[in-house]
């Protein structure tokens, strides 16, 4: 049985404490996530920004309990007090989708190619006991398809995945993800590989879904800053497995607030008329970087001696904003 963990703080929907995930590879192990700690509040949209390899998708999979041998995971992930990392397979089976669900990257073919979309959806609803009969499941599926604005839902259910466009598939995936009315919806790169219009459609849908209380909170994972600027309440900036900056949307995206050099870089690269182009990463990685130092030290233009040998602590800039850099403390 899962006992409520004694670190459980009931103001938070999810607490991640000291999470470390390593991938076993041929010759060595790679740390994808390095001692990450953060919380998810009720009713908020939390964004995780980072480039590929930063570890953000890994965190999403970890929240669903999908990290298994030979990859290793330590730390705690408490969802309403229950530690995901300690769940048994049966508990995981019940927990998945009903408490936390995920919308995968569009580029992924996350639908069974040999079954109609309807069969997959109905199977899901029946397995999770959201409906008791095929007819009931069908009606439920149609209802969710309407919520994501898919036209002619009855017809859509008879289609095969390869007959649908990317935008349709993504909306369908969203419909399936919210069908169990989970507490947390994780959206992993929901807009990659979609055209601009469809991108907006999906983001609007996610916003609407949260506002209509179909899901409690959303974790939005993306490398696209615009996506985050549009939706997030709070933001986590990740680099090479660590959180280097966190704050509210205003904290992180405003140009005159202090930032981690990596964040400044990100923002300046995407904002069109930025005047401050001085923050550029070094072209050749600095060889002084060690494993004990700051992960950004080899590229950081502001790197100091101690950045290479010591890892900085997170320094609070305000109530809501903190930065993990020696520049600030």
């Amino acid at each position: 049985m899962i006992e409520k963990n004694n670190l459980y703080n009931s103001t938070y929907l999810m607490q991640v404490k000291d999470l470390t995930i390593s991938y076993a590879q041929l010759r060595n192990t790679k740390r994808a996530v390095n001692r990450v700690t953060f919380e998810l509040k009720y009713g908020e949209i939390l964004g995780i920004i980072g480039e590929s390899g930063a570890g953000k998708s890994t965190i999403g999979l970890a929240i669903l309990g999908m990290i298994k041998k030979p990859n290793e995971i330590t730390g705690q992930i408490l969802v309403e007090g229950e530690d995901v990392t300690k769940m048994t397979p049966n508990e995981l089976e019940a927990y998945r989708w009903t408490k936390v669900s995920m919308v995968f990257q569009t580029a992924m073919n996350s639908l069974n190619p040999v079954a109609t979309v309807g069969t997959s959806f109905i199977r899901l609803l029946l397995d999770k006991r959201l409906a008791k009969s095929v007819t009931e499941a069908r009606q439920l599926a149609v209802k969710f398809l309407r919520i994501v604005n898919l036209p002619l839902p009855g017809v859509v259910l008879t289609m095969y995945p390869h007959e649908m466009s990317g935008g349709m598939k993504q909306r369908l995936a969203l419909a399936m993800a919210i069908s169990a009315l989970p507490k947390i919806l994780i959206a992993d790169e929901p807009t990659t590989a979609l055209d601009t219009i469809n991108q907006l459609v999906i983001l609007e849908l996610i916003k609407e879904i949260k506002e209509q209380k179909k899901v409690e909170s959303v974790i939005l994972i993306s490398h696209d800053l615009a996506v985050h600027a549009f939706l997030d309440d709070r933001v986590l900036v990740m680099y090479k497995g660590s959180i280097v900056e966190r704050g509210t949307r205003k904290d992180v995206f405003s140009l005159d607030a202090p930032h981690h050099p990596y964040t400044s870089n990100l923002i300046n690269s995407s904002v069109l008329d930025s005047t401050d182009r001085n923050v550029i990463t070094k072209e050749i990685p600095d060889a002084r970087k060690t494993d004990n130092g700051c992960p950004f030290s080899d590229l950081c233009p502001e790197a100091m001696e101690k950045c290479f040998t010591n890892e900085p602590q997170e320094v609070p800039i305000s109530d809501t904003h903190s930065i993990k850099c020696f520049l600030y403390g």
Partner: peptide, 17 residues
């Protein structure tokens, strides 16, 4: 090793399914 099996596992479908 395909994506849709990862997705199906994430959905917490029963082993039989």
């Amino acid at each position: 090793s395909s994506d849709f099996i990862t997705a199906a596992t994430a959905e917490g479908l029963k082993q039989g399914t």
